[in-house]
Amino acid sequence: MARENFQISRMHVGLAAVWRLTWRVLRMSAMRAWLVGLSVAACSALGMYVMTAPPDTANEAVRAWRISLGLSAVAALAGIIGAMIGSISARRTRFALAKSLGATGGTIFRSIMLESACIGLAGFAAGAAAGLAARCAQGLIEWSAGMGSFSGRIILADLPTCLAWLAGLSMALVLAGAFVPAISAARLTVVQAAGQED
């Protein structure tokens, strides 16, 4: 009994430590960029996995995957907006500095959109690669189990179209998610951003 209690309390301490670490990580602006990238990567990976499904995949399965892709895109968009709002809020002082030195609202808006596009592009590349790797691994397993040829387990003929479609989706997600936070950052006055003194 005592040993069990000891184990539970150790688990609580461990969970608390993990929570503290997670919270600290989430508060870091750089980690918000990771969150944006991972949201896009997840979407992109799912998209690649669905689009390279073998021709004999049941229609219901494909439909289910497509619904999952749509839901994950919505979830990713919400995640991106949240992460961008947090990221911009954490960088108010930096924007105040840039504005006080002569940066225009347009400069700040463009820099945020460019930064988001770069993160989105990286997320898309990583996600597409992961999705393709997952599909290849499944094809390999099915081929080794005698379920037809390896090339028959994956559709690669439309890969360029598939990549273009996913790149477009990724860019649309990050740019839509970053748009409103970027506008609000561009419109911040220095006094609002840095706080009023005297």
Partner: peptide, 23 residues
Amino acid sequence: DDDHLARLRRTKIGYVQQAARLA
């Protein structure tokens, strides 16, 4: 407008704030 003011700060006005905001 805000862009003109930003240009003014880049060209005509040097401002040393009390809490020197540096990168």
